[in-house]
Design a protein around this nucleic acid. Structure first.
Lengths: 99, 99
DNA sequence: TGGCTGTTTGGCAAAATAGCCAAGCAGTGG
DNA sequence: CCACTGCTTGGCTATTTTGCCAAACAGCCA
């Protein structure tokens, strides 16, 4: 049996966990199109700004996204690009199942 | 901005969430090679049998794995095959980062 | 029947997560 | 300097998740 290092599992799991919340996933989904500022993401998910900020912190820590401050706004962009492939894949699997 | 349905996000997030635990991810990782019975998976993660069973229930509910009882044992196998691609992708991203 | 093995379920306490409000903080402009 | 905007952080409570033990349960064999 292929034995994977526990560290790798823990680290990978952190990434999946970060994607495992509807708001965070929706934000990442949106970021697949290109960078967005926090206010745009807030509008997307409709939660309190502080909540959105904390969600983004989770994604940042998992290194799924990166942030850059320009002027008064902070822009987030997708850092782990293959996430986009994951999302498509899961969505396709769900659509197939639904049919 | 591409607008995704909240239902789809919630459903997809559930799948990512299911993968977002080191033990569950390790089990799914192992199942990429082929079906395994619960006792093999227990040995892999080293937790209490009941804990393993509950983790498997989470994966089952998310439809990431399927179960089949044969004789006295229950065999689990990967149902959402693209998960295997995800894991490779994340692992590669992590390895690149480490280097 | 009764006892065994492999697995699931119930129940609980500890830990982690979510989301709101309020406060803080950096950059901008009057 | 002051006030304002955009965002983050602290603090709190409610909810969810985790993981153990004990109990239940199904299939097999004596």
């Amino acid at each position: 049996m292929l034995m994977a290092s526990p560290q790798l599992m823990t680290h990978s799991a952190k990434i999946f966990k970060a994607l495992g919340h509807p708001s965070r996933l929706a934000m990442v989904h949106a970021l697949c199109e290109g960078e967005k500022c926090v206010c745009e993401l807030q509008e997307l998910v409709g939660s309190d700004m502080s909540t959105v900020s904390k969600h983004l912190a989770v994604l940042r820590e998992a290194k799924v996204v990166s942030d850059e401050k320009r002027g008064m706004q902070v822009y987030y962009s997708l850092r782990m690009h293959c996430v986009s492939t994951f999302i498509d894949c899961v969505e396709n699997a769900l659509k197939e199942e639904a049919s």
